[in-house]
């Protein structure tokens, strides 16, 4: 029991010529501690969906229940919900505004009503959690490198002690090293802080390596919701909607077709290697 999404629909500009159904009939149940990936091409509705989960967008119809409470109930405190369901937007470093890293990370906790000291304790803890070097705590966030800025921005959300952390393409625009570091860090956070993580991504390779459950969105609806292995078995259908399975999935399927008796479920390099070695050696 954590988040339940029930028959959710969202329509942009209803009643006008520019009406677009951005989400259709979404049903989801997200349990505590899950590591979920959401993939889908631009315009498939992934960003719209995650903004519903913390109440930034209100659904046209349908409901969302957080820990059993209907978030659309009158009197439900959406500001508290936003601190429980932390959302890190794409390019989150664009929201930094304070003169020091520390002050910026304190912004969220202070909005929660914490005093200076408590806010700073939270800030230090979350900056440590994202492995941000202590000697730069009082530097200007605008003078950091791209990867460091992003860590600070993620720490800014973490400092609110969310129970669920949603990240919208946290690796966009980073180089491979930065990409791996951020993903490792997110994976660590989930283990050490026991939070639910929802990772929106374009990269099948990244998703395959980290998540336990994969949701594929297409045309505003959920196309698949299963383990990565099970989802990537539909690699042909994924291709039809402009998505691609990891390269190794193609290799495994091609090998099976060529008569080499490999299991085709591998989605990461390590899995594929083990399987090929098992069959060929």
């Amino acid at each position: 029991m954590s988040i339940i999404v029930n028959e959710l629909n969202y329509i942009y500009n209803p009643g006008t010529a520019m009406e677009v159904q951005a989400l259709r009939d979404i049903n989801l149940e997200i349990s505590d501690g899950e590591f979920i990936g959401i993939i889908g091409h631009t315009g498939s509705g992934k960003s719209t969906l995650i903004q519903h989960l913390n109440g930034l967008i209100r659904a046209t119809s349908g409901g969302i229940f957080y820990n059993g409470a209907d978030i659309y109930d009158e009197g439900y405190d959406l500001r508290t919900l936003r601190t429980k369901v932390g959302l890190v937007f794409q390019y989150p470093e664009h929201q930094l505004f304070e003169t020091t890293v520390m002050a910026d990370v304190c912004y969220g906790p202070k909005n929660q009503g914490l005093d200076e000291k408590e806010a700073m304790l939270r800030a230090v803890a979350s900056l440590n959690a994202v492995h941000f070097p202590e000697k730069h705590f009082y530097d200007s966030p605008f003078e950091l490198s791209g990867g460091q800025k992003r860590r600070v921005a993620i720490a800014g959300v973490l400092a609110m002690n969310p129970e669920v952390l949603i990240l919208d393409e946290p690796t966009a625009g980073l180089d491979p090293q930065g990409r791996d570091e951020i993903l490792e860090m997110v994976s660590d956070l989930r283990r050490t802080q026991h939070i639910t993580v929802i990772l929106v991504s374009h990269s099948m390779e990244d998703v395959a390596r980290y998540v336990d459950r994969l949701i594929v969105m297409n045309g505003g609806g959920i196309m698949y919701d299963d383990t990565p292995q099970a989802v990537f078995a539909h690699y042909k259908e994924l291709e039809e909607v402009g998505l691609m399975a990891p390269q190794v999935t193609y290799v495994m399927h091609a090998l099976a077709e060529a008569g080499i008796p490999v299991e085709t479920g591998a989605t990461t390099v390590a899995e594929a290697k083990d399987e090929i070695v098992r069959v060929l050696c």
Binding site: Q51, N54, L56, R79, R82, T83, G86, L87, V88, F89, P92, H94, Q95, Y107, G108, N111, Q112, G156, V157, M160
Partner: peptide, 16 residues
């Protein structure tokens, strides 16, 4: 559009 986005991002950090 950018204003909209930043506003949402700050709201997600509890801004009012």
């Amino acid at each position: 559009e950018e204003t909209d986005k930043i506003m949402k991002a700050q709201k997600a950090r509890g801004a009012d």
